[in-house]
Amino acid sequence: MIVVLEVFTLALLTLFALTSVVAAYLAIRERDLVRAVVFSAIQSSMYALIYYVLMAPDIVLVYIPVSVGLIPAVLLFVIKKTERYEGE
C-alpha cells in the first residue's frame, strides 16, 4: 500500500514538474508580454501543487496569493505603463 502511494506521489510530482518546464519555456519564448505573464502564472501554480505534494501547507498558503495573484498583478501594471511587445 505504502509503495503504491509512493509511486503515485512521485508520478504526480513528475507530471507537475514537466508541466512547469513547458510553461516556463513558453513564458520565456513568448513575445507578447501579457501572454508571458499568464504562462508564468501557470508555472507558479504548478509549483504550488508541487509544494502541496511535498507536505508544505504553510508555503502553499503564502505562495498562491503571492505568485499566482500578486506578482502577475504587478507585472500587468508594469506592462500597462510601459510596452506590451518585446523585441523588434
Binding site: P57, D58, V60, L61, V62, P65, V66, L70
Partner: peptide, 11 residues
C-alpha cells in the same frame, strides 16, 4: 494550523 502572519498578510 498551517498559517501565520506572512500568509495572512499576503492573503
Amino acid at each position: 494550523t498551517p498559517g501565520g502572519g506572512f500568509q495572512a498578510g499576503s492573503i
